[in-house]
Nucleic acid binder design. Sequence first.
DNA 1: TCGTCGGGAGACAACGTTGTCATGATGTCG
DNA 2: CGACATCATGACAACGTTGTCTCCCGACGA
Lengths: 327, 327
Amino acid sequence: MNDVARLAGVSIKTVSRVVNDEPSVHPDTADRVLAAIERLGFRRNLGARNLRRGSGTGTLGLIVEDVGNPFYSELHRAVERIAIRHGRRVLTGSSEEIPDRERELALEFCARRVDGLLVVPAGTRHGYLLPEMRAGTPVVFVDRPPGDIAADTVLVDNAGGTAAAVAHLVAHGHRRIAFVADSPEIFTAAERLRGFREGCATAGVPCAERLVVMRTPTRESVAEAAHRVLTCPDPATAVVAGNNRVTVHLVRALAGAGRRPALVGFDDFELADLLDPPVSVVAHDVSALGEAAAELLLARVRGDQSPPRKVVLPVRIEARGSGEVAA
Amino acid sequence: MNDVARLAGVSIKTVSRVVNDEPSVHPDTADRVLAAIERLGFRRNLGARNLRRGSGTGTLGLIVEDVGNPFYSELHRAVERIAIRHGRRVLTGSSEEIPDRERELALEFCARRVDGLLVVPAGTRHGYLLPEMRAGTPVVFVDRPPGDIAADTVLVDNAGGTAAAVAHLVAHGHRRIAFVADSPEIFTAAERLRGFREGCATAGVPCAERLVVMRTPTRESVAEAAHRVLTCPDPATAVVAGNNRVTVHLVRALAGAGRRPALVGFDDFELADLLDPPVSVVAHDVSALGEAAAELLLARVRGDQSPPRKVVLPVRIEARGSGEVAA
DNA sequence: TCGTCGGGAGACAACGTTGTCATGATGTCG
DNA sequence: CGACATCATGACAACGTTGTCTCCCGACGA
């Protein structure tokens, strides 16, 4: 900026005036400055600007489990869309479901002075965020609630979804229904299990513990779980999958099998309708989730001080055939 | 930091020493300072730090078409992985395939003083980046080359891929092969068309212009294209799809049809193997693409001044059945 | 003619850090 | 016992901006 000022024969402050197009700069002067800027390839340093102005950095932080997972990338996209609309960029990080990495990312984003933080929590303890929140960085939790603090949270109706899945299967005559999901330490998995049990209770069908398998879904672990619930005494005739990865692994595990159980997945996924049979799912609007969270966060950024809010978005059964297999 | 210093009864510089754990601070003093930091919830301002140190901001910029597209989110993930390994974060933006948005994002990222920029270009003119590059921000182009400047570029073997797809189909007896792809203004689409033609020439099969349809793939446009190439005189018996979206739309369009053409897609996608028939594709390693680009960029950040490099990653045919349908 | 007003521009400080240098206290060695 | 290295700390400037205040000058009304 100094160089620009020298080249244009003005003071540094006048250059500042020009780049911020403040009024009360003589057009001729402005032209000289613009020419100098052009010639030197000057670009103002936003970091310094933000420091001086004390305003925010125009950045939102987003922490998810894995930016490469389609579920989270759709979330990311929705957040980005809202952020852009408010003139902000998104800084993203993958926690890899490791609480320490979540914490590290969150604190670093705060050190970078993001205007606000969106977190899909990996851990269950979030006291470390309290100082930051008190210091004025609003935080909104997405898809899962914080562990031990009160804060804005946007969720989907997990329990309602699995309960509906069970009802759907029972309506097609199933009475021995399995539930295969992620580890119960994960909030969504635990909630979906709760809904599964409630659904069973409501429908008056038994909920056999041996038909419930919960652990981190890998291709192998899900295949093993499928084998177990389908070959035990009184085997399952239908399966509820706890999330999109479980569903995909299950579809793969069942692909070779002869007689297949009915299946309802949680989370919609591309091509579900083109599989054979098409996979019924508990669908929810991931974009709406991201948008709601981002809007809530931005309201906080703008100064909304009302008590922490909890938003629960609805889910719906997307019946495509795999759930309609008769018992 | 002032407050911390006051509370700990030391100078602000000593606080700085503690947070950077420089040696030569008396342990007792350090403890007092740490206590004060804890009590006040102090977090150092990385913006100010970066400004003062003149070092980079520890950030890489990544511009893609759409962070929500699985192809780009996998790329994002790979870039993030490498960035983290070098202690850096990733600032991402979606250009939405609009040259002006690409430019706007790139320049803003430069103004934020990213250490380097990864760009999947939307436009074909990149002169606007020259000043930034001269000013020391390295730029690496990913998946598509820059329009009118010389710069590092990491691509996949687009032409080789479609040529191989044609060879694969010819080997199964096909002689009337269609090519459905994105608009030829998109570099990858144009290259794949070139490879398609070369493949036809090499195999000695005709390349009828009416079997080539190129435009922005939507569900409708692809369905229409499929209908056209399959119902014209001398209709196609096989189709090469130009990218993952075209492939998915094609699968959907063909799902209801009776006798289906053979199909080879470009870009692998989840569940391709579980469709009926499983979809053969020209596969390439998106993670490798992102990693190679990020590594190259980081080498530049570290000061590598060698001439611009062009890296072309290999592709391979993933034969799953849909390409083996006999003519 | 004088006082006033407003446009155009610059000097200076400050944002929150850290690099450089200086200081005083303490210990060490010949 | 003096010269000197070492340790612990602080004062100060600087990074690249922008907010505030001030100054100058020409125009305008009384």
